[in-house]
Design a protein around this nucleic acid. Structure first.
Lengths: 218, 218
DNA sequence: TATTGTTAGTGTTCACAGTACACTAAGAAG
DNA sequence: CTTCTTAGTGTACTGTGAACACTAACAATA
């Protein structure tokens, strides 16, 4: 900032936001990708994103793009990292602020805006070849999600309001890609005191119905 | 990125890097600040920083600014967060990618480049009023450093090659702002196996000399 | 209506890590 | 040789994470 007075002397890069939109579906962790219709990387899959408007905060730009792509708002959204290597976009200098968003199964109605007609969910664990440096961005997002899962309550963002402990456990197993002990898991989660037991159960098959819980936002 | 094809339609923000350069001195955690000579915030202290050149990576820009301000290179440097609220700079849209750097006592020869003649170390715990949103940036840097201290080996970046365990403990106490138990600290640090005992001691006063250790980069 | 299949739900033991806590060792100064 | 100051060391307790197997409740069907 010390030299901001010289603003006009400097050629300015373009600034975009790229979104890693994650959800749980089909017993897998999925990322929303859009197929590119222009060069460069024509027909490759890419993370959704777009330019930051001149009078809009980075977070607002990310939220706007998210809503354009998925129709959802008011979901978990966090800044990830800023990627700005010259050469990451063959058309010129583009600095991209990556965000990651978590949406739950109830919010997965993709309304695919014009510029994202070819949007689809892909497994984050075996994604297609991605445009730009998006493979790196995605990898970092998954790493960050795994870390946050252990220290925060982000897991709940991937579930609907009411959920069973087995569903929550499955979310952890899918993200961490390893089995989790049922008893230890329940003990730990309940000890945190972040969820409230409901006087309700859900039966979904030929077996004992599961008790429903809800996240207690404090 | 999906709309990058329309680059030319968008007014571009300026992009800068701001640096939170931290060191241990005078038994305190210090940040390097520069006094602004122009409006806005004339005469206020600010984090050093500057524009990202069009063909330079963000990290390279940060390293370059760091070297301009302090003369040091090859030190710990990590991207912190990107601040981009419209209005954070009264002159126009400026998006700033914040980095934090750690330098040790031996590297504190500030060579104050032209544009930073008024550079000085200030306590991070009671800093002067800062320009722009730099107070927020600084606060976030300290929070991040505290976290990293517990999970990584960043602490060693603040010490010279050879150091005593008491010096290392003091670094932890200063950053965490709480006393640390000597025996538990030594046990934990030695158990990590990240430092190597040297066949050397240092006497600096009327008391038993302390054994020197060195960080083992693996 | 009894049996089978399937998921829900529950406690205890053990290993390890973090924490609390007090004395001896080695040098310099006087 | 006494005093002062920092370096250096071990043990007991507490809480947390990990391993591990059986009963409960329902639907389906024989």
């Amino acid at each position: 900032m010390s030299k901001a007075e010289k603003t006009k002397d400097y050629p300015r890069p373009s600034v975009t936001v790229d979104l890693v939109i994650l959800t749980i579906a089909e017993d897998d962790l999925k990322v929303l990708l859009v197929r590119r219709r222009q060069e460069p990387f024509k027909n490759r899959w890419a993370l959704p994103g777009g330019f930051v408007e001149i009078d809009e905060s980075l977070e607002a730009a990310a939220a706007r793009e998210l809503e354009e792509e998925t129709g959802v708002r008011d979901v978990y959204l966090e800044q990830l990292y800023t990627f700005g290597d010259p050469g990451r976009d063959p058309r010129g200098r583009v600095i991209s602020v990556a965000y990651f968003a978590l949406i739950n199964a109830e919010q997965q109605h993709i309304v695919a805006a014009d510029d994202a007609a070819d949007a689809a969910w892909h497994s984050v664990f075996k994604p297609p070849k991605l445009a730009f440096d998006h493979a790196q961005v995605l990898e970092y997002a998954v790493w960050r999600l795994r870390n946050k899962l252990e220290w925060t309550t982000v897991g709940y963002e991937l579930l609907p309001k009411k959920f069973t402990l087995s569903e929550l456990q499955r979310v952890y197993e899918i993200i961490l890609q390893r089995p989790v002990d049922k008893r230890n898991f329940r003990k730990k989660i309940l000890a945190q005191g972040r969820i409230r037991e409901l006087q309700e159960t859900r039966a979904d098959g030929a077996h004992r119905p599961a008790r429903l819980y809800t996240f207690r936002k404090s």
